[in-house]
Amino acid sequence: MSIFCTSLRVKNIGRELFPGPGFLQDGDVVEIIGEQSTGKSTILQDLMITCLLPEDHDGCMSGVIYFDLDYHFDLLRVVAIIEQRTQGTENDIQNWLKNFHLIRCADMEQLVISLHAIEPLIANSKIPVGMIILDSISALHWVDSNAGNNSQYLKEAKLRKIVQVLQALKERYKLCILASTQQLLKKDCRQNRDDEEEVVPYKPFLCRQWLEFVKHRFVVTKDDHEEVTTRKILCLSSKMDTKQFVIDEKGFHLVKA
């Protein structure tokens, strides 16, 4: 078992969120779904930081390629969280950042082309790349839907191509793929309370290929009461309970019950 584990680049991270053994590891595909300001990006960035940090800070010392599709990524905040977490020197942090790459794409078409183009970057990097992050994959959902006119096939054509290339990269380089999805459709309100079956807390709208591609799926929710915000995360792929978490200057952490 130990030999098997050491051969993995990304391993045992996100212990609080992912079901064991192994937790989040190479080749996993994770989707985080939520409404605005529920903490999707912060959770992704928290996992990303763990991936970037060296072993003595409980990290994996692996590279990360981050696709900022929302144009919301703020590196200075990420650096602030790293500082809080490691008390590392400026020099250390700058060194760790060298394994991080950010890509901003104009549209989904450019995303498809860029995903094909990063292969040499993954294959040739000195520090192996452990994660690809897409934040968020639904950023242009409506634009693509509109461009496809009435054809469901054309509407989903780009996302299908994205899944196809991600699948290939994942198999070839054993990467983790993490994505956030904005909850663009209101979940079904017609809850049948008598029904024994649990109501799915989100409404899937992305293409079937993507839904099947994801291994771990989380739904994050937020509840504002006056000036107190309660945030919760629910893992759909395992029988875990809903967990409560907070977001502050140290980033994301769970509330210990």
């Binding site: 700058q94 991080f100 890509i103």
Partner: peptide, 17 residues
């Protein structure tokens, strides 16, 4: 050529910082 021409360029974290 197509990949080089139409892809978005990855920016290194240190440069971005």
């Amino acid at each position: 050529v197509l990949l080089a021409q139409y892809s978005a360029f990855p920016v290194n974290g240190l440069d971005l910082y």
